[in-house]
Nucleic acid binder design. Structure first.
Length: 665
RNA sequence: GCGCCCGUAGCUCAGCGGAUAGAGCACCCGCCUCCUAAGCGGGGGGCCGCCGGUUCAAUUCCGGCCGGGCGCACCA
């Protein structure tokens, strides 16, 4: 809740520059936050930028500006620092009082309908930590956008007709010789997503044993795509069960969706045929009659795109991407283009929809279907902006999507097709060893990490990780809070587990490969989700006790702040590392600025680090300044007001990261 | 070969061109008659990979190297 102040300071400085120096054009400049409160609350470095054009020393410019900036509402004083910075100190009392009372609201942003697609796990096995990063980033993006008033539709793409599902079908059939009813029985009596996890890796080994077995897969895949046969029926069953397992896992992490988009529906409803028609009409794809891609429909890749020429091959060919194979089967790229067209609403066709499940959010989850749609579905699709949350390995394919849109004259949509890209999650050697995998050999041993592989069954399952965290949290909770009921204690443990894992997934910037290490992820100390929760729990405890002991509720604390002596707002001034009330409130106020930065950079580590820093500031304040035991009534009230604002802001920040605040810890 | 990402403390990572380069972990020292020690305070530890360029100012921007990762299928 600092952006409004920054804006009016910016305007005032611009105005002062015009008046003082007769500048018609004021160069763009930023309102910064100085490294410590002793230097001021806001700072402007514009004097450096103007030194040359004005032929004047930065310090002198800053001095003139300071003199011109009188009577700025909300600003107590303006100081020209010796180095040329212009530093501003805010009026503290009204700043604190208004914010603690919640009188400074979020700016509504102009909003256009946005689709965020994330998770999109192949529905043939349990979710692992690699999938987790995707879902955590995607869900956080959704939360941040929604806070700013953007209407967001969350889609989860289900590849129900792909190779991975076919492989599990092959496993049930060829390795276990089971029928659909057998599989159904297994699903009802086992942890089915775990069962398929193991089966999938066994199938991979089976293929490796004899290459001719791949023909079985090809045939299964063909049946799966065509539908109306037993293979497809078994596939539909497996997919449904696994998708429900994924949703359950994600619900543990406070992740929900609006729509499941099934690839099978894209095929059955001829979305691809329509998209293909459009692409052909516009000349975006053509039938290659020669060379390596003979008989394929290909798309020309733009200059600077992908493609490595094979030795001796003309460069032309490497600049083509196959969209339809010579056997007439469309590739993933083609299906994705059709899906993207639909999301923007210019495919000219729509899905039918069915209610799929209830969710903890209260919003029903819908799924696409090819027939028998239910009434009451919201108007899905027709977005102005699309974020596809997919790891960086699929960069080229995402670039092709934009290219296809551009070729068809949809420049704006191409621009608004955002590949929200992030680096993958790998495993540390130590964690791979703990999971029982043999030490890597050869070149793999030299790598600093082990790659997660669903095919090999090598990975940490999300539910296992959550269970481990919850068990550990449960022990810690009951150790400290013997009076809690078993149910409450378990609820808190689950919240702590979710916090630990979600914070862990967000604290790294998205361009950084995460080498997942179990020991590190299980930590509750230092820069972790539980540390952040703990800070808010402490703040909440203060208010609980304030009510128990003094009969004061938050509203009592916040009323009458305007008349109270405000010495407390200057405590700690002049000290180099201020852990005082003003520093805490000021930092808490920066959340809106941080959210803006986060969206601009699509970088949630900014939000995560900010929340952590704010919690640190509070913990330091907490240790230094008593509240319940403070004798001076005015100081006590101001401190409590600061704590009220802090918990309001950090709770909000945690909510953006999908982290709840437990009742006790 | 081409494209993208990464290179900052022993380890894992932050650092929207600006004020003494920070945090967590690990290590050492201190703090529970005091609102929960999942905490707090203090300490040691840095050619910000290397070389150039732009700039009043470069860890930050640009170029070139070096090292590591990932892509560049009629897989998804």
């Amino acid at each position: 809740m600092i952006l409004n102040v920054q804006r009016h300071v910016h305007d005032a400085v611009t105005d002062a520059l015009r008046r003082q120096f007769g500048l018609a054009e004021v160069p763009p400049f930023a309102i910064e936050v100085p490294p410590s409160r002793a230097l001021g609350d806001l700072a402007v470095a514009v004097a450096f930028q103007l030194a040359r054009t004005l032929r004047k020393a930065p310090r002198a410019i800053a001095g003139d500006l300071a003199a011109a900036l009188t009577d700025l509402p909300g600003v107590a004083r303006v100081v020209a620092a010796p180095n040329g910075y212009l530093n501003l100190y805010l009026e503290r009392r009204p700043f604190v009082a208004a914010r603690a009372r919640g009188e400074v609201a979020w700016d509504p942003q102009p909003a256009e309908k946005t689709i965020v697609e994330h998770t999109a796990i192949n529905p043939n096995k349990a979710a692992h930590v690699g999938h987790l990063r995707n879902a955590a980033l995607g869900d956080t993006l959704v939360r941040v956008l929604r806070l700013r008033g953007t209407p967001v539709e969350v889609q989860n793409y289900i590849d129900d007709t792909g190779v991975q599902v076919a492989d599990v079908i092959v496993g049930f059939r060829e390795l276990e010789h089971l029928s659909l009813t057998d599989v159904q029985r297994i699903a009802d009596s086992t942890r089915f997503d775990y069962y398929c996890w193991d089966l999938y890796s066994r199938v991979t080994e089976w293929y490796d044993g004899n290459a001719t077995r791949l023909a079985v897969r090809a045939s299964a895949l063909h049946d799966l795509e065509r539908g109306g046969n037993e293979t497809a029926a078994m596939g539909a069953f497996i997919v449904d069960r696994i998708v429900r397992a994924h949703l359950k896992t994600m619900a543990r992490l406070n992740i929900a969706y609006d729509l499941l988009t099934y690839e099978g529906d894209i095929l059955r409803l001829q979305f691809w045929a329509h998209a293909f028609g459009i692409l052909k009409d516009q000349g975006a794809v053509f039938l290659q009659t020669d060379g390596r891609h003979q008989g394929c429909w290909v798309m020309r890749i733009e200059e600077g795109g992908l493609g490595a020429p094979e030795p001796g091959e003309p460069e032309e060919e490497s600049r083509e991407k196959v969209i339809v194979r010579s056997n007439g089967v469309v590739t993933y790229v083609g299906k994705d283009i059709a899906n993207q067209f639909w999301k923007f609403g210019f495919l000219g066709r729509d899905f039918h929809y069915r209610r799929f499940a209830a969710q903890a959010t209260g919003h029903p989850l819908w799924a696409t279907t090819s027939t028998d749609g239910e009434p009451g579905a919201p108007p899905f699709g027709h977005a102005c902006r699309i974020y596809n949350v997919i790891d960086s390995r699929q960069m080229y394919l995402q670039a092709l999507l934009s290219q296809a849109l551009r070729t068809l004259g949809h420049a704006k949509e191409a621009e608004n097709s955002v590949h929200f890209s992030y680096e993958m999650v790998a495993l540390s050697h130590a964690t791979a060893r703990e999971l029982g995998y043999p030490p890597a050999e050869g070149d793999d041993a030299k790598k600093p990490f082990v790659e997660v592989s669903g095919r090999k069954g090598l990975g940490v399952k999300v539910d296992d990780l959550l269970d481990l965290l919850a068990t550990k949290a449960s022990a810690e909770v009951s150790k400290r809070n013997a009076e809690l009921s078993v149910e409450e204690s378990e609820r808190v443990a689950a919240q702590i587990a979710t916090a630990a894992i979600r914070y862990f997934m967000l604290k790294f910037s998205r361009g950084k490969l995460i080498v997942f290490d179990m020991e590190e992820a299980l930590s509750f100390e230092g820069e972790t989700g539980p540390y952040l929760q703990y800070a808010v729990v402490r703040a909440n405890n203060i208010f609980r006790k304030l009510e128990d002991r003094d009969g004061l509720v938050e509203a009592d604390v916040l009323s009458g702040l305007d008349e109270l002596p405000d010495d407390e707002l200057r405590s700690g001034d002049g000290e180099p590392d201020a852990h005082d009330l003003w520093a805490l409130v000021f930092e808490a106020a920066r959340l809106d600025d941080i959210v803006e930065q986060t969206i601009r950079a699509l970088e949630f580590s900014i939000l995560a680090k900010y929340a952590f820093g704010l919690a640190q500031l509070f913990n330091a304040f907490y240790h230094r300044y008593p509240i319940l035991n403070e004798d001076d009534a005015a100081r006590k009230r101001w401190r409590a007001a600061g704590v009220a604002y802090f918990r309001q802001q950090l709770t909000q920040a945690l909510d953006l990261m999908g982290i709840a605040v437990p009742t006790r810890m």
